[in-house]
Nucleic acid binder design. Structure first.
Length: 106
DNA sequence: CGTATGACGAGCC
DNA sequence: AGGCTCGCCATAC
């Protein structure tokens, strides 16, 4: 089954949808908002599997970065960065985001 | 139930 | 700074 709804993964996706444009959140933040501050890997799994399960759900996965404020996407890191910059998120020379400034507070 | 996967996080060297 | 190990979690098979 699609890992279905009602599951933690579904909850994670909802949390991610809560992140407004121009804001970012770390995997750990999303996990915490979903109920488990240590389930960052569950978030990875959820986002890793979600795209195909919610083509219409448009999950703003690009707003989720690692704690260091850098893009860890397995692919499409450029796309992720472009999308974020388009929303107003600035990247440092090291390719990192100022989490203190753009981190979304749930 | 045991093993493997995954875009993490924190710690250690 | 860069790289590796271990811990945590949810899901799939």
């Amino acid at each position: 089954m699609k890992s279905g709804n009602g599951s933690v993964s579904a909850r994670i996706r909802e949390v991610v949808r809560t992140i407004p444009p121009g804001r970012v959140a770390s995997y750990g933040d999303v996990a915490a908002a979903a109920g488990n501050p240590r389930a960052s890997r569950a978030v990875v799994w959820a986002l890793r599997s979600a795209p195909d399960t919610d083509p219409a759900g448009r999950l703003p996965w690009h707003r989720v970065v690692n704690r260091a404020g850098s893009v860890s996407a397995h692919e499409g890191q450029e796309l992720q960065r472009v999308l974020l910059e388009a929303e107003g998120v600035e990247f440092g020379l090291a390719g990192t985001i100022d989490m203190e400034r753009y981190r979304w507070r749930f």
